[in-house]
Amino acid sequence: MSIFGKVYDRKQTRSVKWDMLQEVFQSNDVLPMWVADMDFKAPEEVNQALIERAKHGIYGYTTIDNDVSSSIVNWLQRRHDWKIDPSWLSYSPGVVNSLHMAVQAFTEPGDKVLIQTPVYTPFYNIIKELDREMVKNPLIYKDQYYTIDFDDLEKKLASGVKAFIFCSPHNPVGRVWNKDELQKIADLCLQYNVMIFSDEIHADLIFPEEKHIPIATLSEEISKNTITCMAPSKTFNLAGLDASYVITSDKVNRQKLDKAFHRQGFHNMLNTMGNTALEAAYQHGEAWLDELVQVLEQHAHYVREMFESHAPELKVVRSEGTYLLWVDCSALELNKQELKKFMVEQARVGLNAGQDYGTEGEAFMRINIACPKTTLEEGIKRIISAVQAR
């Protein structure tokens, strides 16, 4: 059996995904396929590194040394052809924290911040909580695929937008933006003096025929206009260890960002176990990741084929990466409340409701396919049976 085929009991481990079903879905009788973590064990080298560190038994303040920063530098070079200087790195508990700090560092209350909808829910929350004005550039949806409306994007950027929170690869629609798309975005942001805050947390989870291009790699000028947020958390299922980093090539911008972190009490540190896991994952996790990506691609094909054959009302948006599938349920002709209720009460699956990603997502559901095949098969069978029974 593949290391990704084994089923682990995650209940009563304080798992958000498995132990909060009653709070989230008002039912414990659902199969959780929602929040973005995986039902797979981290690479064995990571687990062993954590065990060895725990054996020491002392968990004092932990520094980030050259071994840790070098593991990031080497990873980015190998996986993304991106040569960075270690001095460009800042550290944070998570990408969402970093985006909060970037918005505070480079914009003021009332400033316009742009997002491309439907998009990851915290993007909305950051803008609202920090009293910025939200500007939406809705993606174009056609034939189960999303593209960028560049005419609308330019119009919105020209309206006085100060920053663009960019999702690359995109959550939830699964797009891996190509070089032409990235270049157009970057050029428009330079033209209208708009900073790019690029959330690239899913950068490693790319299907084999695609390639993730960090937008900051397009040119030195674009790099200086970009704050890139990355982490091993989605890649290696380490979200609970609070370890991420920010890449800022421009020294002045980096100082401004670090100052924003310091004002909130963050001082360029990672917790002891996050530090250990990050280094071990980037040094030893490559073979594990390559197998994972193959499994995820197979799972995506399975879901698409099953729905096409047995529940054609459900259209799987063509995904190029991530372990999250965006499913068009509009043919069911249910409103957003009815759709959410149908999946919980009739299908008995716990999915992310598309409405949480903006009004453009109200007829959609997001499915997490990062689970053993037997779990996936059970979840998809439940959904198909419920659709057929309508």
Rank of each mutant, 00 (worst) to 15 (best):
Glu221Asp: 12
Ala353Trp: 01
Glu297Phe: 08
Glu210Val: 04
Ala370Trp: 01
Leu218Tyr: 04
Ala163Pro: 04
Lys381Arg: 12
Leu296His: 08
Pro372Arg: 11
His56Ile: 15
Val246Thr: 10
Leu21Gln: 08
Lys251Gln: 12
Asn137Asp: 13
Leu157Asp: 00
Glu210Ile: 04
Ala105Ile: 06
Cys329Ala: 13
Val317Asn: 04
Arg78Cys: 13
Arg78Asn: 15
Ser309Leu: 14
Leu257Pro: 00
Val46Ser: 02
Gly174Arg: 03
Gly379Phe: 00
Ile201Pro: 00
Gly274Arg: 00
Ser219Glu: 06
His267Lys: 11
Ile367Leu: 15
Arg175His: 08
Lys256Arg: 14
Val161His: 01
Val113Phe: 03
Leu241Lys: 00
Thr63Gln: 12
Ala243Gly: 04
Lys315Pro: 02
Thr248Ile: 15
Pro169Asn: 06
Tyr192Asn: 08
Val7Lys: 11
Lys256Ala: 07
Leu99Phe: 12
Val316Ser: 02
Ala370Ile: 01
Glu291Gln: 13
Glu210Leu: 02
Ser249Val: 01
Tyr245Ile: 10
Val135Asp: 05
Glu305Val: 07
Gly60Asn: 10
Arg14Lys: 14
Asp65Gly: 14
Met195Cys: 06
Leu296Asn: 03
Lys17Asn: 08
Leu376Arg: 00
Arg53Ser: 10
Leu257Asp: 02
Leu324Asp: 07
Glu221Met: 07
Pro372Ser: 07
Gln12Leu: 13
Trp88Ala: 05
Thr276Met: 12
Leu21Ala: 03
Trp82Ile: 09
Val135His: 07
Gly354Gln: 02
Lys373Thr: 15
Ala280Val: 02
His301Ala: 12
Pro118Gln: 05
Ser219Arg: 05
Ile140Asp: 09
Val46Pro: 04
Leu270Gln: 03
Pro109Glu: 01
Arg348Pro: 07
Ala216Asn: 10
Asp258Gln: 11
Ala186Arg: 01
Gly174Cys: 05
Pro43Lys: 03
Lys142His: 10
Phe4Val: 00
Gly94Glu: 06
Met20Val: 07
Ile383Asp: 07
His301Arg: 12
Asp250Gly: 11
Gln12Glu: 15
Ile213Ala: 00
Gly361Cys: 06
Gln346Gly: 04
Gln26Ser: 14
Pro118Asp: 07
Pro118Thr: 08
Ala54Gln: 15
Ile213Met: 06
Ala347Glu: 03
Ser309Ile: 04
Pro93Asp: 09
Cys371Ile: 12
Pro312Glu: 11
Arg382Gly: 13
Phe123Trp: 06
Asn137Pro: 06
Leu314Cys: 05
Ile247Glu: 02
Tyr146Asp: 01
Val35Ala: 05
Phe342Leu: 05
Val387Trp: 01
Ser219Gly: 05
Pro372Phe: 12
Lys373Ala: 14
Val344Phe: 08
Leu241Cys: 03
Val96Ala: 10
Leu76Asn: 09
Lys155Ile: 04
Gly354Arg: 02
Glu108Asp: 14
Trp34Ala: 12
Ala163Ile: 00
Ala287Phe: 14
Val349Pro: 02
Leu76His: 10
Lys251Tyr: 14
Ser244Tyr: 03
Pro172Ala: 11
Asn137Tyr: 08
Pro118Ala: 07
Pro109Lys: 08
Leu339Ile: 06
Glu286Cys: 11
Lys128Tyr: 05
Leu376Asn: 05
Arg366Ala: 09
Glu221Thr: 12
Arg366Cys: 12
Leu76Val: 10
Ala260Trp: 03
Ala216Asp: 10
Leu270Pro: 02
Val316Leu: 09
Gln298His: 08
Gly110Leu: 13
Asp180Ile: 07
Lys6Trp: 12
Gln264Trp: 09
Ile215Phe: 00
Lys179Pro: 04
Ile201Thr: 08
